[in-house]
Design a protein around this nucleic acid. Structure first.
Lengths: 346, 346
DNA sequence: CCTAGCACTCTCCGGAGTAGACTGCTAACC
DNA sequence: GGTTAGCAGTCTACTCCGGAGAGTGCTAGG
């Protein structure tokens, strides 16, 4: 915030413009604000404030005789001057409480449900990044004969299961298989995923040629484990909301947004870029190249078990977003998720 | 086909209208057809044919002085009168061959890749339904202590892994756990998923109260296994293509389509409804209530290992779709997938 | 510093007029 | 009888006004 402090009336006017614009989608005129803001001043006074706010870069003018709409910087100022501790609407509170009242034990399922919950509650699209698993300890590994191939299975301390299928080495007796299974189990047990990955690569170099693919497959498995749960690294729900008329996005923008949502690593980087260590982050339009291209905003928050940060949940929607409600929802969901994860972890 | 046979020139004219309309998105006039169809007759003659085709319900007129566009019945007739054995374009052939040239051993990964392949090759959205797993045999089961809960893990004969996490029963000694693990393994080994499911429910009824949740969790796991791979029952790729301008869909239609794609069971039923035992099926617009609502078409084909049908792949796009190319692509992909699956199964 | 009033600007909307695209029909032709 | 050229008729799409309305910016007065 290198911007100067705004007078409190300017803040009120900016707030009125943002909220009215988000509600109606139409540029907002001075008259409307004078009527509804409850400031008790005339439209002419508001006009002066509007001109000043435009000068400061918080508002813009589609054309001379239209009302004002907020710029990205305007939304930012709006968010920054929001009174802390936004309120959930009753229906939202109930939906969130209801969701977390069900007993759920598998984090993957929970996250899928969470994205749907967020999208339903906010009317935008919900996102979730599962724990990275880098420091998930290996509880055990197994090498299993599956058809004419082998499957290497890793079970993590928190119940994550990852697997890779690999061609069966030639001339492998049943006893050889059992021996290999024990060998692998001994090597990896108790290590975390990152250590196990390094170890697997080292062992691959040292192993006889016949066993090498096996160790490489193991390395892949651990690498995958570090990335996130299963093969799905970013969970998305409620994307249909993004195609809604109300968002009045250009078709092409929607298309690009969908493309990015499908390209998981891109989203992963974006979320990692913007999500803070605690509480809620808001990224508005051009503040990040990615969201800028979509003319979208991203509200995200981390969740944790105890003190260790696990993953991220969030919401994507148009820059003209109901920030108050979305921030409250994301905060509430992240908090509940943290409680749940802490409990599971205990 | 209770429609009468069409004269061969009528077929040619219908084909020209469909192909030109799919290409340009504009209603097609008699002049255009006379020039490009290579029939060697004048526009006036074409006009007579067009009027006849409209009378038969294959074409329609947005308004008096516009060209013709095909009706759903028109597309159907077009597809039915297509010469068998459509050709792939070189680029498509290469993309498909390239994809299947990589060694891939895990069917889930393959299917995810397949949807992306199909969407890239056709410019519409790709779908895949994994094998149902009802008759996948249980290779082994394991009961593992994970944090303060238990995880029940099932490994199928083809390498599918399913798991459920369940609260730890109170007062369970380590020996008790080992005993339970053996007991469960004995009960389920060698059964197929459907049998195991029934068995689990039966055992749950008979088991002491403390063990009951465990058997119910096991039943859930098997139920899940019957549904499809992992928790994802329909794999979708390339949805961004559906938001493309070219499809000139109404926003609301796109929205409904996205909603349905996210609601997996709906898609599962649809695909099950329309996919034939072999070769390629085409469902056009109003031929199925679901596709009718989207003004979309669905091209699908089953893949199999040996003789048993495993799952389905397909493509969704606008009714004004390049059926020749899409059908050829879906057919080719289903065939390659069958070869791959048969090989994995051997 | 606020307000009322007013001239000014610019979009939006409807109507009129026109160009262009196709059709459908008729009459001649092979 | 099927085919063709020609032509009148129909309907959309586009453009070009002109007026209504919204909203601003400015000025002068409280």
């Amino acid at each position: 915030m290198d911007q100067p402090e705004l007078g409190s009336r300017k803040v009120a006017v900016l707030r009125a413009v943002v909220e009215e614009y988000v509600r109606s989608g139409e540029p907002v005129g001075s008259e409307t604000i004078a009527e509804r803001s409850g400031l008790g001043v005339s439209a002419a006074t508001i006009r002066n404030e509007l001109a000043a706010l435009e000068e400061l870069g918080y508002l813009m003018h589609p054309h001379t005789s239209a009302g004002r709409i907020p710029t990205d910087t305007g939304y930012r100022k709006y968010v920054d001057t929001l009174p802390p501790g936004g309120r959930l609407r009753d229906a939202q509170r109930r939906a969130i409480a209801g969701f977390f009242a069900e007993t759920m034990l598998d984090l993957e399922d929970v996250l899928k449900g969470t994205t749907q919950l967020l999208s339903r509650v906010t009317q935008y699209a919900g996102l979730a990044v599962p724990p990275s698993g880098s420091d998930e300890q290996i509880l055990r590994t197994e090498l299993i004969e599956v058809g004419n191939a082998l499957m290497f299975l890793v079970i993590g301390q928190h119940g994550r299961v990852d697997k890779t299928i690999v061609d069966r080495p030639e001339r492998l007796e049943p006893e050889g298989l059992a021996a290999l299974d024990r060998k692998l189990a001994d090597v990896f047990r108790g290590k975390n995923a990152a250590e196990a990955h390094t170890e697997a690569l080292k062992s691959a170099a040292a192993a006889p040629a016949g066993e090498r693919p096996l160790f490489l497959a193991a390395a892949d498995t651990f690498a995958n484990m570090q990335m996130g749960a299963g093969t799905h690294h970013v969970v998305v729900g409620g994307v249909a909301n993004l195609a809604d008329e109300a968002a009045h996005w250009r078709r092409e923008t929607v298309r690009r947004l969908f493309e990015a949502l499908e390209h998981e690593s891109e989203m992963l980087v974006l979320l990692r870029d913007v999500t803070p260590d605690e509480d809620v982050n808001v990224t508005i339009g051009a503040e990040h190249p990615q969201t800028g291209e979509w003319e979208a905003s991203l509200v995200s928050a981390p969740f944790r078990a105890g003190v260790t940060s696990l993953g991220t949940v969030g919401v994507v929607g148009p820059t003209a977003m109901d920030y108050v409600s979305v921030m409250a929802s994301v905060r509430a969901v992240a908090r509940r998720l943290s409680e749940l994860a802490t409990e599971l972890d205990a």
